Amino acid sequence: MTTVASGTGVGPLLRGWRERRGVSQLELALRADSSARHICFIETGRSRPSEAMILRLAEHLEIPVRERNALLLAAGYAPRYAETSLDDPAMGALREGIERLLQGYEPFPAIVVDGVYTVVAANRGIAMLLEGLPERLLTPPLNAMRITLHPEGLSARIRNLREWRGHLLAQMERQIALARSKPLRELYDEVAAYPLPPETDGGPADRADPTAYPYFALPPQIEHDGHVLSFVSSISTFNTPMDVTVAELAIETFLPADPATVKYCQGLSAAAGRP
C-alpha cells in the first residue's frame, strides 16, 4: 500500500527527490521539456502539476514505481501503478516464467527476492547452500540478508565473510539512497549490527584466498560439506514494470567462478537423480 504523510504536498516531495539525485531545477527542466520557473513553481506549491507532468518528472528522476504512486496521491490524483500479489491469478504467467528460469539454472543457485529481500522463490541450488542451517532461520517468510549475515546462518560458512558482508551492506546502502524505504532501512540496521561469527579469528572468514578470485568480480566463497564453492552473483530486474510488486522483484543467479564449483554442483545433482 502506498501512503503519504499528512500535510506533505507533491512539491516538497519532488524537491526532495530532485535534491537526492543531485539535479538542479534547470537540468530537470531541460530533461522534462519544461522550464526552471515552472519546476520552481511546482516545488513551492504555486503551481499544481498535471498527472502527466508528475510522471514525466518521476521518470527523469528515476523515482521508484511505489513512490510515483505516492507523488500522484500527494497531488490529488489516483495511483497509476497497481500492487498485485504474486498469488493473484493475474500473475500466473509471471510465476510460471520465474519458475522456469529458476529450474533452468539448476544445479546452480538462483533466488528471487522482493524490495526488502524477502525470498519469493528459490531453486534447489539455494536449498543445497542452506542445508543444516537452524530451522528458525528457515521459517517463512525467509529473508535473504538475514540468512546470509546472521551469525548462525551462512556467514559462518563464508570464507571471505568480511569482504562479502561489506559488499552486501554497501548494496543495501545504495538501495536506501535510491528509494525512501523505511523497512529496508530497518533491515539494514538489523543485519549491520550482527556480530561476526566467533570463528572469524583464523576461521572461515579469514581463510579466503584473494589470488583465487576471478579478475572480473568478487565471489562469495562458501564451504559445503568440506568443499569450497565460489560463485559470481548477478542480479536482474524487470524492464518497464507497470506494477509495484513486479518493479521490486530481483532475480539473483550465482555463476560458478571456477571449474571445481561446476563439477561439485553437477555431481550433487547427478547423485540426487536430477537431469
Rank of each mutant, 00 (worst) to 15 (best):
R165T: 05
H38I: 13
G45Y: 10
M91K: 07
R95M: 06
G153Q: 11
Y77D: 08
Y77I: 05
E135P: 04
A144C: 08
P151E: 13
L94W: 04
R68V: 04
M128L: 14
N69P: 10
L55G: 02
A90C: 03
R157P: 00
A121D: 15
R48L: 00
S47Q: 03
D114M: 00
N160L: 06
E67N: 10
V116F: 13
G76L: 00
E135A: 15
E59H: 15
L101I: 11
R146T: 08
M91S: 03
L137M: 09
P64W: 05
I147K: 10
H150F: 07
A58D: 05
I126D: 02
Y117W: 14
T84A: 07
D114Y: 03
G132F: 01
T84M: 00
G115F: 02
P89N: 09
Y81D: 04
R165Y: 04
I98E: 04
E96C: 10
L94C: 10
L130W: 07
R136T: 14
C40H: 15
T118R: 14
Y81S: 10
L94D: 02
Y81V: 07
H38E: 13
L72Q: 12
L61S: 03
E152W: 15
H38Q: 15
E152H: 15
L73Q: 09
R162H: 13
I39R: 03
S50H: 00
P151I: 15
V120K: 06
I54R: 06
A52F: 12
E96M: 14
S85A: 11
I147N: 11
I111V: 15
R136M: 09
W164E: 05
R68G: 06
P89E: 07
M53R: 07
R159Q: 06
E131N: 07
A121E: 12
R157T: 01
T84E: 02
V113K: 11
G115L: 05
I126W: 09
E51L: 15
V65G: 12
A127C: 04
R46K: 12
P140C: 13
P134Q: 00
A78R: 08
R165N: 12
M145Y: 09
S50K: 05
I54P: 05
I63P: 03
V119N: 14
R37P: 06
R48C: 01
L101M: 07
P79H: 08
L73T: 08
N160E: 03
P109M: 06
P134W: 07
V120I: 14
S155Y: 00
